[in-house]
């Protein structure tokens, strides 16, 4: 009995190594951080613009991911149709595609000469590249899988008998979804949205490739960090990265604990 109560030492060791693997780079950043000039680095107009833009873009990307991803997740979980497996695999593509390639793919689809983009341009005068909307599209592209995967699992995991019960009470589909399915899957959906937001916040490759880099329009924090590194301003880059880290770690720790903890 005592043997069984003991924690599995090998797992604990390797787990400890893995945790350290995540922790050490952060310690490295913190050690090298320009604490004395941190405030001036962050209140620098370019940094402030990037911070604001990052917040706006990542939030809009989350809105897009939730708005489009939730229905998709629901269909994948609830509707039987040929090719469902294929669609499910398709949703995961942005997870494995290098973001830069994702950005090029987005250009070929939504760019000025892209599959759909040429019609957007010709018929509506809409061009996405080099615009904030383009940055949002790029971020939503890489972030949405997190939402879809989480939400689909949640929709699958619900006890459908409650939905049946709601229908016998006269509830139409939308009412069932709003008043029964949504409340019971809410924690998982929220967790998915937070993960998607975090991914959008850190997006670099697809954004710079698809939306380009224009201060105030598409230069989000990750782009600004990269450009600061390019111009040898390591201090500013680290300062901004710390903000990115601080914000996301705080939000993830707080919200994920609170929402997913309820599961």
């Amino acid at each position: 009995m005592r043997r069984r109560a003991r924690p599995p030492i090998v797992a604990v060791c390797i787990g400890g190594v893995a945790a350290t693997f995540f922790l050490l780079p952060l310690v490295g950043l913190a050690r090298r951080a320009p604490w004395s000039s941190l405030l001036s680095d962050l209140t620098d107009p370019a940094a402030r613009t990037a911070l604001r833009l990052s917040l706006i873009c990542s939030l809009w990307a989350t809105v897009v991911a939730v708005g489009a991803g939730l229905p998709l997740a629901w269909v994948l979980a609830r509707v039987e149709f040929p090719g469902r497996r294929l669609v499910r695999a398709l949703v995961l593509v942005p997870l494995v595609l290098p973001p830069v390639v994702g950005g090029v793919a987005l250009l070929l689809a939504f760019g000025r000469r892209g599959l759909l983009g040429q019609y957007l341009d010709r018929w509506f005068g809409i061009t996405l590249p080099f615009t904030t909307a383009g940055a949002v599209v790029a971020e939503a592209f890489v972030a949405m899988p997190f939402l879809v995967v989480t939400a689909e699992a949640a929709f699958r995991g619900t006890d459908r008998r409650y939905e049946d019960a709601a229908r016998t009470l006269g509830a139409k589909r939308w009412t069932v979804f709003r008043r029964v399915t949504l409340p019971s899957t809410w924690p998982a959906l929220a967790a998915g949205a937070v993960l998607a937001w975090a991914r959008a916040l850190g997006e670099f490759g697809a954004t710079i490739t698809f939306a380009g880099n224009t201060p105030g329009r598409t230069t989000t924090i990750p782009l600004q960090v990269y450009l600061l590194l390019e111009s040898g301003r390591l201090d500013g880059a680290i300062a901004l990265s710390l903000v990115l880290l601080g914000v996301s770690v705080a939000v993830l720790a707080l919200l994920r604990e609170r929402w997913v903890g309820a599961l």
Partner: peptide, 20 residues
């Protein structure tokens, strides 16, 4: 006639009261 349109009332085995 779909479920929601039927003039029925059901008491389910485990009651299935909406937990929230």
């Amino acid at each position: 006639v779909t479920v929601e349109e039927r003039p029925i009332g059901v008491v389910f085995q485990d009651y299935l009261l909406f937990p929230h």
